[in-house]
Design a protein around this nucleic acid. Structure first.
Length: 819
RNA sequence: GGGCGUAUAGCUCAGUGGUAGAGCGCUACCUUGACAUGGUAGAAGUCCGUAGUUCGAUCCUACGUACGCCCA
């Protein structure tokens, strides 16, 4: 069924973006997932579904939808995937071959992804698809660089940069993660000029040969007498100055701090402020440099051990103890980062914290509390954004250097995209620097350089020929919370610098789908739990094959926006149950619609039975609830309200009550039958529309079956969102409360007395006294409702108490129809 | 150490300043002319703890505890 509906949508072009429709535009900046579809799990299906509920809602509320899909194909994850899959690394393979392999895996991944999203029923216009490595994105990305260069916001500098020794590349602050671990803290003695101990505490004794200064707090009386003096570095025997800094905590250890180039961001700061010496003792490869003397060539761990041993033997170690430490590691390599000094391109962000915070405040956050994550990230920024990566697969910098002069040559915008390692510089530059050596920049840009302009890519800011673009800024950004500091932050930076605006009006932040243990679903889960038939409960393809995309989507709608949701296969089964139930409800209605004339005038509301008015009243309220939910970017509210209405109000009660009316016009009258039919037709139509964003397949199927021909509408998903019809009816609600109490009492007794469903009641007497006396009028005035609901021939109301007592204080007595 | 979030039935989660909710699971019954991938009924909770505000707190406030995430 889903396959057929999917083909139908595609044949009809239901989700195609039409720039000329004249409708208000709703554009979505969706997260580009990266390569290798092998890691795809139901958590991904969840977050993409959640965004898509909104898209479908917006489409039905009359918006022209711009819903693209991107693929994040450049960057370290892709490279690493290729390195692992093909057992190569960038040192053993040529740049061109490596890029070719990346492109190949990228293409494979994209096919798998696209198939996945189509299966899931995402209403994407696939013509708007982009890949972050394609020509349009390279052009946009390079244009972004050139624009920022011209504005003076991107600069080349050889400041210390965060360095990943495993992947041999620079990193940005956002590429770091914190790893908590146990470390060894050593108290190590330096010597003042008089030969007295000056003890510092460090977890990194291997950096001692890189020590360039000792620091203490300016008010620390212990060290004031030593001001301006120097200290001697143990084993390495050279002198470093003694300096002061407000940042030193006098309470920590001895109040003396060693500053090396470079142990951490603090060292970098002091190095810059106090113009300290530079002694890089750890190389880009993670090995000790010549400055480390006899330790040269050792890896960090080995050098630490050797240096500690030598310090100990020479009597410089005063104490050592285990401590908890937080180490910055590369997000991809998981290894502690070091520092290196290599000329890199930086985007200046540190001087703009205030203006980014202002942008954060301008953005509409859903849920609201996600804003603080961005604010805190901005406040904690320590480095400008290094956008250079010493990798192969990425967007090249549109830049050449003149060796003789050091001049920077920028590509002409008309030539973009360029690859300076292959393409010649612009003609004017060749003429100007004739006879000199011009070298293309070999580094590639940080992958976020491209991802951060996804809004501009979608809006076709670069003006690529033949590409459709939406308005800028876009309406909505959708993403998970863990990339607020990267994707969201960098996007805000880019739009602020390029256009002095936000990239979108709203940001909707989703949570994660977790496994049963509440942990992130891992690749291991995907491998470990695959059975002999290839079925895996975490694999979206498996789940969709087994239960259908609607069922999986239904599960995804169970999490409040922004919260994580544990995945249990049984919850998908509940979704499957709903789909089947809808199918059966439709079948039932179809059955009772035999001979129904859709064009005939509807029975006026006032002439319909109380249950008709009640179910329509509930429908109006439901429309309000679901709509309110979506307006607040919360789909979970709507699903819950729909569930309740559909199962409880419609299936359990209304349908059960009206069956007899529909079946026996000779008893209840033809108007009564027609009224029930009118009501059912409308209720089903509205319920289908309200459920459409969540379970698009089954709702479309039923719409096509029952309504499409009549309405001349192509697709339910292009039809309009239901609006309240002013049918809310408190009186009917009150009356139905009484009637339902009788019905429930009867169900209770029927179960207790083991009366088969098929057995009708001859006479049912409701005994009313005390608190329930007020029900008399409701019951007498709506006897037909009860007759139909209970299959009773007659209903009587009596005072006193019957013999049969229900817990609600309502008492019934009855005689059954003898067969 | 700082911040954010979460804590409600066996499980996954809604919710409300006034008697506590759903689905799943469990128990019993029912093969009824939509549905056994079903239906009906039932059992099941110290709403994390303590103190405060209030006529009344699961909800508001403060403090604490546990867990998750982010940042040092």
């Amino acid at each position: 069924m889903e396959r057929r509906i999917r083909d139908f949508w595609e044949a009809e072009g239901v989700y195609k973006y039409d720039p000329d429709s004249g409708k208000p535009q709703f554009s979505v900046d969706t997260p580009p997932p990266y390569v290798s579809a092998a890691h795809l799990h139901v958590g991904h299906a969840m977050s993409y579904s959640q965004a898509e509920f909104l898209v479908r809602y917006k489409r039905m509320t009359g918006h022209e939808i711009f819903y693209p899909m991107g693929f994040d194909d450049n960057g370290l994850p892709t490279e690493r995937f290729v390195e692992q899959t093909h057992k190569v690394n960038k040192k053993t393979i040529s740049r061109a071959d490596f890029r070719a392999l990346c492109m190949e895996e990228t293409a494979k991944g994209a096919v798998a992804y696209e198939e996945m999203w189509r299966d899931l029923g995402l209403s994407i216009d696939w013509r708007l698809r982009y890949s972050t490595i394609d020509e349009h994105c390279r052009r946009t990305s390079q244009l972004s660089f050139i624009d920022l260069y011209k504005k003076g916001e991107v600069v080349r500098s050889d400041d210390p940069v965060l360095w990943d020794t495993v992947y041999d590349t620079a990193l940005a602050q956002a590429d770091l993660e914190v790893m908590d671990r146990k470390g060894q803290l050593f108290d190590i003695a330096f010597r003042d000029p008089d030969g007295n101990d000056m003890v510092i505490s460090t977890t990194r004794p291997e950096l001692i040969p890189g020590c360039v200064a000792l620091y203490h707090h300016p008010d620390d009386e212990r060290y004031k007498p030593l001001a301006g003096k120097s200290a001697s570095v143990p084993i390495f025997d050279y002198d470093v100055p003694l300096k002061t800094s407000e940042d030193v905590d006098p309470e920590f250890g001895t109040g003396l701090m060693m500053c090396c180039t470079f142990g951490d961001g603090e060292d970098v700061k002091k190095w810059r402020i106090d113009k300290l010496d530079t002694r890089l003792v750890i190389g880009r490869d993670g090995k000790m440099t010549a400055l480390a003397g006899k330790y040269e060539g050792m890896d960090i761990g080995g050098a630490r051990k050797a240096i500690v041993q030598d310090l100990d033997e020479a009597g410089f170690i005063r104490d050592q103890r285990r401590v908890d430490q937080a180490v910055s590691v590369g997000e991809r390599s998981g290894q502690p980062v070091e520092f290196a000094m290599v000329p890199q391109w930086f985007i200046k962000v540190l001087d703009k914290k205030e203006q980014f915070l202002k942008r954060s405040a301008e953005l509409n956050w859903f849920p609201e509390h996600m804003k603080i994550r961005l604010d805190q990230w901005i406040e904690g920024l320590k480095y400008d954004w290094n956008i250079s990566r010493q990798r192969f697969y990425g967007v090249p910098f549109p830049v050449w250097y003149v060796q003789e002069t050091g001049d920077v040559i920028l590509a002409d915008e008309a030539d973009l995209p360029v690859d300076p390692t292959e393409d010649a510089p612009p003609q004017w530059a060749q003429e100007k620097y004739a006879g000199m050596t011009i070298v293309g920049e070999p580094d590639v840009m940080d992958t976020w350089m491209t991802s951060s302009v996804s809004a501009q890519i979608n809006a076709n800011w670069a003006g690529t020929q033949g590409r459709m673009g939406c308005d800028f800024p876009l309406s909505l950004r959708v993403q998970a919370f863990e990339i607020i500091r990267t994707w969201l932050f960098y996007s805000v930076v880019k739009s602020d610098l390029h256009a002095a605006t936000l990239p979108w009006q709203q940001a909707m932040i989703s949570g994660w789908g977790l496994n049963e243990q509440g942990k992130k679903i891992s690749k291991r889960d995907l491998e470990k739990f695959t059975d002999e038939n290839g079925y895996n409960r975490y694999d979206p393809h498996s789940v969709i094959r087994e239960y259908g995309a609607d069922a999986l989507r239904y599960w995804a709608a169970g999490a409040r926006l922004g919260s994580d949701l544990r995945y249990h296969e049984k919850d998908v089964k509940v979704g499957r149950k709903l789909v089947i139930k809808m199918w059966n409800v439709a079948r039932l209605i179809e059955m009772y619609l035999e001979g129904y004339d859709r064009d005939a005038a509807k029975v006026p509301l006032a002439d319909r039975a109380v249950e008709d008015r009640w179910v329509l009243s509930g429908l109006d309220k439901l429309i309000g609830d679901v709509t309110r939910g979506f307006e607040g970017y919360d789909y979970a509210i709507g699903r819950e309200a729909l569930d309740k209405y559909f199962w409880n109000t419609l299936c359990d009660n209304y349908l059960e009550i009206v069956k007899e009316r529909l079946r026996k016009p000779e008893v209840f009258g033809e108007t009564s039958q027609k009224a029930a039919q009118d009501t059912l037709v409308e209720v089903l139509r509205t319920v289908l529309a309200l459920f459409a964003p969540y379970v698009p397949f089954i709702t479309e199927e039923l719409y096509q079956k029952f309504y499409a021909a009549d309405e001349g509408g192509a697709s339910l998903h292009k039809s309009s969102w239901p609006e309240k019809q002013g049918r809310e009816d408190a009186v009917a609600g009150e009356t139905m409360k009484s009637l339902l109490a009788v019905i429930e009492a009867w169900r209770f007794m029927r179960t207790r007395d083991k009366i088969p469903f098929s057995t009708g009641i001859d006479v049912l007497t409701v005994h009313l006294e005390g608190e329930v006396a007020h029900m008399k009028e409701a019951i007498e005035a709506n006897a037909d409702t009860l007759k139909s609901a209970l299959r009773a021939r007659s209903i009587k109301v009596d005072g006193g108490t019957g013999t049969e007592t229900n817990r609600d204080g309502l008492t019934l007595s009855y005689t059954v129809v003898e067969e």
